[in-house]
Design a protein around this nucleic acid. Structure first.
Length: 256
DNA sequence: AAGCCTCACAACCGCGTTTTG
DNA sequence: CCAAAACGCGGTTGTGAGGCT
């Protein structure tokens, strides 16, 4: 592959964008879209390379971008997804509405890495999930909505509350008992399609899925196996439970 | 007040992948 | 099918702002 000459070799401008340049780029894209980044700067009258224009638009000017500080919930999600996906910043960004890969990469290097630096997850961490705060509930719901969710199943709503039924759709219900907030995982995905077996057991104040004791979660006890899940769902369940564990762990992380 | 240091983040660079002719 | 062009990603750097001495 032949490398395109870099901007300075073509006499193009580099460095920070001026408000005037921003305005030209915004106006042009609003009028014409951005079908061809290579051709865009010339057509728009910008002395920038297409790559620079694309980056400026994608990372800063696009109206889809959410500005402002990351919430604790977003940070927790990033930490979890990084654990799951590694440095695949764009994949992480795709699961955080309005955040760019560059932004996530930056916040990882400047904030979150430090936050994790002195933290070692407990060995043999207990795979129970209890006493989770409501923000985490929301995070989990967002995660499940955006990850591994079967195409036809409904999205999870924070306000949804239900009881288990044989054909219930995926619902995670934040259940509050006194000061405790816990997750009651009632049924994640339609059992007939995504689970080889799904017992209709019901828990409150703990995350638990029962499969005739093959896979049991009780506060203080570890999960035992994922054998109950069929292969199409296994990765997603692995993700889900890792997330529960991580979220639990994260509650012990020091604040910045 | 000045100089130095640290931090945050926008932007660049190089390379792999995908698209196009 | 192939080469060139374009795109997109992740690592890295440059720079301005703010804090500290």
């Amino acid at each position: 592959m032949v490398r395109a000459p870099c901007c300075d070799k073509m006499g193009l401008k580099k460095g920070p964008w001026s408000p005037e340049e921003d305005q030209i780029l915004i106006s042009y894209i609003q009028r014409n879209g951005h079908g061809n980044w290579r051709a865009l700067p010339k057509q728009a009258g910008l002395l920038r390379c297409g790559k620079s224009c694309r980056l400026r638009w994608m990372n800063y000017l696009s109206p889809d971008i959410k500005r402002g500080n990351f919430t604790k919930e977003e940070e927790d999600t990033i930490i979890h997804l990084h654990e799951k996906l590694g440095n695949r910043w764009s994949a992480i960004a795709s699961r955080l509405q309005g955040r760019t890969d560059n932004e996530i990469k930056n916040i990882w290097h400047t904030h979150l890495k430090k936050r994790l630096k002195n933290y070692q997850p407990p060995r043999n961490s207990k795979r129970y999930y209890n006493n989770v705060n409501s923000n985490s509930c929301t995070s989990i719901q967002q995660e499940i909505n955006s990850f591994g969710h079967p195409p036809n199943s409904p999205q999870i709503s924070t306000s949804e509350v239900s009881t288990v039924t044989a054909d219930s759709s995926s619902i995670i219900t934040p259940a509050t008992t006194d000061d405790q907030k816990a997750i009651k995982l009632e049924e994640i995905i339609d059992s007939s399609e995504y689970f080889t077996e799904m017992h209709e057991s019901l828990w409150t104040n703990e995350l638990a899925i029962d499969d005739n004791s093959n896979f049991v979660t009780v506060a203080g006890e570890e999960f035992q196996s994922l054998d109950m899940f069929n292969t199409t769902m296994e990765d997603d369940m692995d993700f889900l439970f890792n997330f529960f564990i991580r979220t639990e762990d994260l509650q012990e992380l020091p604040e910045l």
